[in-house]
Design a protein around this nucleic acid. Structure first.
Lengths: 340, 340
DNA sequence: CGCCGTTAGTGGAACGTTCCACAAAATCTG
DNA sequence: CAGATTTTGTGGAACGTTCCACTAACGGCG
């Protein structure tokens, strides 16, 4: 039950293989009669062009390799939506690989893509060392998503974490909050920028003296620990957590202590994950334009691939605020904190 | 800056291309001296075998195509973990495609995999019509994950929804619940089986007369609507929702009505998504062995690919119960329901 | 020392396409 | 209606590997 080749079709239709090739690719200058004949024979035989052979002779695969550090992070699902849409629009296909945040696994996935002769590479928040990435970028255009590039051959698309943090602080300030604390994200990607953005915004609103940062991480537990730490001092009226997961940890730690949200304390997260939208959580948070980031990544690739660009570009996407139920105006000064 | 080929390496090392090929594939009968020479030249040139050319001549790609209906569903992330681990163990690589639950997009992704000459196909909960799937299965081994197959050429791996529903009911019954209602999943995959399992288990525990099923769906809103419906009759002491999302909708609808969980009502979900584990939600739920399902899918493929099996196999994986905080013994009969 | 069996290495065919230069047929042009 | 031009179609080379049949070299053995 061998697969039919272009030769089988040619024989069946009584034409040359070149003509079949032409028909399959939708060339214009072939007579309707032969086109018909080829098409019917192809359908009969169940012929399907062999992309492997085509890639070999054309010396191009039209394949974009997308390496995900971690499929479990829903963040990337939407980035990929954007990548696929844009890639398809330009006639590229994408192949996905994952690395589970393990360097060796990622390296193997990367190797696979190079052997498969992907024409461009999108690395979404990889744990791979920059050395490896730089090496890959010498073979094919490479763009980093959600990780900043410092190498001239590697582009990047990130969200403007500083601006996002400002958005969060500005929202809280507009509601009337002054004692706004930040539970930071430790070593997490973008965490230092978010911290910096928080500090800067606090100063800009004249709350420079109120800056209060407690250590945390991009996990539920990070949020919980942050709350524990905050309780050791004067409780703020609002908390800006480094990401949604930490914000949810914050929420649950507050609930355990009978602190009401948003009545007693307002909470803002970052990332706008699906979690944040769940009614039970209903978290005000900063959204990253994920599909647009995916599209931008493809655009950067195409600029190098087809436009011949050779200089580095780091695209910074503007985040936006999504207001839900976890933020409100602070209780008027001196009003009793009620327990439920 | 053309990519070096095997010929370039051969020339550089002063050997034949066949020898280079042998070395690259780690053949045993080649002298240490030449092996060394070839290796160094290859490294110098940055030579990397071209998988495209290799696939063409070998007439095999060692590629398994994995089509995800929807990347956003974290369920699949773990299935893929299993798939990749198992595939790698047997020397196969996986390429992922997604279809966003849109038939046309899925069909295109499928087409890509066929043209790329993937050797086996794993379709995770596709929306593709069975006709299309059956057609693909005539070209290469095909297995469905989380969707039952009724075609002899297509295998499947599903979780035993009937057993899972039984688990949920048994857990609640063991806690002392008798008035256990079910919010169903409508047309969702596995929903009819879960409903059936619920009914069967209720009868088995002698609660046949207490069976109460209200229509819902696999969404938060489905759960909310279910609760609204349940309120129109006598409130049950426990609710088994068709999946986690519906359970979370149930939770939030109950919270809005000041019904406490688990004190007043116990709630059980299905799927054990990441959502269920969030402290704030802390849902008792039925877990599907996702990575094992992925591994099983690969095994089924390999049985056909390398073992020559030609008969259909439908693998049914046993679910398990994960007890968290949303279930407890019912209030003793007649005790006042307290408001908080 | 001649023969044999093994080991190390080679050259060319093959994989299924596209590309290119060219040929044949059809159409136009004056 | 002859020549020029366009349209339609063709055969063979090429893509970068692996596979296969084969040879050369080498050591062992009687």
């Amino acid at each position: 039950m061998k697969r039919p080749t272009i030769i089988d079709v040619a024989r069946g239709a009584g034409v040359s293989k070149s003509l079949v090739s032409l028909v399959m690719r939708g060339a214009s200058n072939v007579s309707d009669e032969k086109r018909q004949r080829v098409m019917t024979v192809a359908a009969q035989l169940g012929y399907r062009p062999n992309a492997v052979a085509r890639s070999l002779v054309q010396r191009r695969t039209s394949l974009l390799g997308v390496l995900l550090s971690d499929l479990h992070n829903p963040f990337f699902a939407e980035v990929i939506d954007g990548i696929q849409a844009e890639a398809a629009a330009y006639g590229y296909r994408t192949i996905l690989g994952t690395g589970d945040r393990v360097e060796l696994t990622e390296a193997r996935a990367l190797e696979t893509m190079l052997e498969l002769r992907a024409e461009g590479l999108i690395l979404a928040s990889p744990v791979l060392p920059m050395r490896t990435i730089a090496a890959a970028s010498r073979e094919l255009p490479t763009v980093l998503v959600a990780r900043r590039s410092r190498v001239a051959t590697v582009d990047s698309v990130t969200n403007d974490d500083v601006a996002g943090a400002s958005l969060a602080v500005a929202h809280l300030a507009a509601l009337g909050h002054e004692r706004i604390a930040h539970i930071d994200g430790g070593e997490g990607a973008g965490a230092p920028e978010r911290r910096r953005g928080y500090e800067r915004a606090m100063r800009k609103h004249g709350f420079g003296a109120r800056v209060r940062i407690v250590p945390g991480s991009y996990t539920e537990d990070g949020g919980r620990r942050g709350v524990a730490e905050l309780l050791s001092g004067e409780m703020p009226t609002a908390i800006f957590a480094a990401n949604d997961l930490a914000a949810i940890g914050t929420l649950s730690a507050l609930a355990e202590r009978d602190v009401r949200v948003p009545e007693d304390v307002s909470v803002v997260g970052y990332d706008n994950t699906a979690l944040a939208a769940v009614r039970l959580i209903h978290l005000t948070t900063v959204d990253q334009p994920r599909p647009e980031m995916g599209r931008a990544a493809v655009t950067l690739l195409l600029e190098r691939l087809e436009g011949g660009r050779r200089t580095m570009r780091n695209v910074l996407m503007p985040p936006s605020l999504v207001v839900r139920g976890s933020t409100a105006a602070p209780r008027p000064r001196g009003s009793k904190r009620s327990r439920r």
